[in-house]
Design a protein around this nucleic acid. Structure first.
Lengths: 331, 331
DNA sequence: GGACAACCTGGAAACGTTTACGGCTACCGT
DNA sequence: ACGGTAGCCGTAAACGTTTCCAGGTTGTCC
């Protein structure tokens, strides 16, 4: 473990003042002779400027934070990859934080006041009044992945869940589905609420909706088992995410139903899991990487111009048609 | 966006010096009256100490870095979750870095000299001499996830890949397999090399090994297609990871082979993907979360006692038996 | 040759925090 | 009453860097 050299040592070795050394290293106006001397000294000593001291002086940390309720959810990871890329390209480091529940999210946002990051991309599971307030009070810009109340003047990037759900319903209808059911996750989460109402809007108020206890395959299988055993069994199911859809496929398989013959299934999120599953899963693509990318870009833009008007971006949805809903779809 | 209060303002408002304010806030010896006054002033102003200034003074950032070649690989994400948990529990923030190729990894380790983190957990794809040297020169401790040359005195946490591979081979033999083949990833990666030799050791030098171009399902399917069309077709396949194994299952399905009847398949990593796939995938569990946890703990231990002897931890492997290799296994 | 500009340099302050040091007060024991 | 001591407190230095400011040198143009 090598000992670190400071700019003072570099200046001493080059025979100049620290001020000149700093200028020379940062490309400010200085004589070519001193630039060379300082460069040489820095190279010999293996000098690398200290990030902390620089941060203190400049008032910026060159760090951005990405806060997410549940790391481990593949969708968030996809976003993280995109964010990391954009952020690193702009010379920032990325801090990852796990917020856990709602209270944790608020704590995390207020802790931004410690000044360890220049901004944050936040993906909250639930939007509470406290959270809106905390974001408004934040000393650094926050970009929210998801929807926020109109009144909160904050940059947001949201998926077009209603549009995506409508696409899925239209697709299923076109394939001849008569009775489409919706397998939702918990209704008290933002995605659960938004996708649930979007489905009712698209499929009509009389369409069946059931809610699983959470967004997992096991929960989806349990609720689908019941759903598919009804006398008025649906001939198509839209699930609120891919994991739930896989659960539905499992249940259908156990009940001896053919997919897509007896039951067409569509998921949401278009994950690798769905692509690799057999039958491959038709899924609504909500553009997770693009959402991450846009959020990061929004954050960078605001850092450059803090006065700019808050922007609400909606990333368009598309439908990836595969076997689970269409016999002719790609495997 | 609120303006941040400094300790100077707090001291002023409380009518004491900054020194006293600092002492009062940090619980050092001071009169109860001043403690109360300072606490009150801090509360009123909403004072939160500045992380950067504190870092500069204390010489520690309270940040740890996790560097990984390819975020997006689920195994690394699993580790990240565990690391994040341990690290946050000890009051550290977690920085995530994407290293990309080998050169990027070395750059990243040397950039630790900027002092933006107090330590690093590194998961390198390839171990080069430059990397070993860079780690030795690092001003802060580095814990490596994976194997390192004996000579490099560095803390490591490695999976017991040989043990796991042996478990899988024994399991397949026990189930009656006569001709076991190995579908490897690229041999010039550390996992590829280790698992490849482990397989040869366990299954005998005459056992067939083929290498896919990378660790993906598509690559696995391509190479398996060829492998399973041979006249001396194997009756069991061990794949170097779950994605490759899924590729093998796809190929088998296309060729009309029954699993596990005609072909038993075993993967490595025991991912959710494998659990959810049908037939569910038997897989070698290399304990990714535990490896992450142990690595983080090792890093924390070294931060507490920099003089301690470098430790090489090997996390034991186990086998999760499922349908793809055993008709009676859990679905 | 002198005035002035252009260029470069070093001293010093500043960012916000912690902490070593010395001085003050008050109290205790003799 | 007085020396000693314990407990608090404020001053100032320090962490490593950037940057303002003033001073000095050199060169140029009239």
């Amino acid at each position: 473990m090598a000992q670190r050299a400071t700019i003072t040592q570099v200046a001493q070795r080059a025979g100049v003042s620290v001020a000149s050394a700093s200028r020379a290293l940062n490309g400010l106006t200085s004589a070519t002779a001193t630039v060379e001397a300082v460069r040489a000294a820095a190279r010999e000593l293996g000098y690398i400027p200290d990030a902390t001291a620089r941060s203190l002086k400049l008032g910026r940390t060159l760090q951005l934070a990405y806060a997410v309720a549940d790391i481990g959810n593949p969708v968030y990871v996809e976003m993280m990859g995109a964010i990391q890329e954009v952020v690193a390209g702009a010379g920032y480091r990325l801090l990852v934080a796990n917020t856990g529940d709602a209270a944790g999210t608020v704590d995390l946002v207020t802790s931004l006041q410690r000044g360890y990051a220049d901004g944050m991309v936040l993906s909250p599971l639930r939007v509470t009044d406290e959270l809106v307030e905390a974001i408004a009070q934040s000393p650094v810009p926050v970009v929210v992945l998801g929807r926020m109340p109109e009144a909160a003047a904050v940059d947001t990037v949201a998926p077009d869940s209603p549009g995506g759900v409508a696409l899925a319903v239209a697709h299923l209808r076109e394939r001849g589905a008569r009775r489409i059911a919706f397998v939702n996750g918990p209704f008290d989460t933002t995605p659960g609420r938004v996708r649930g109402t979007a489905f009712t809007d698209a499929a009509g108020a009389d369409a069946i909706t059931v809610a699983a206890t959470d967004f997992t395959a096991v929960a989806g299988e349990a609720v689908a088992h019941e759903l598919l055993s009804r006398p008025d069994r649906p001939d198509a199911v839209l699930a609120a995410n891919d994991l739930l859809a896989i659960g539905v496929l499992h249940a259908a398989d156990q009940l001896g139903l053919q997919t897509p013959g007896d039951l067409a299934v569509v998921g949401v999120d278009d994950t690798d899991l769905g692509k690799l599953f057999r039958p491959s899963l038709t899924s609504v693509n909500l553009g997770a990487p693009e959402r991450g990318r846009r959020a990061a870009e929004l954050l960078l833009a605001r850092l450059q111009d803090p006065g700019r008007k808050p922007q609400q971006i909606v990333v368009p949805a598309s439908l990836s048609v595969r076997r689970s809903s269409d016999g002719k779809g790609s495997r």
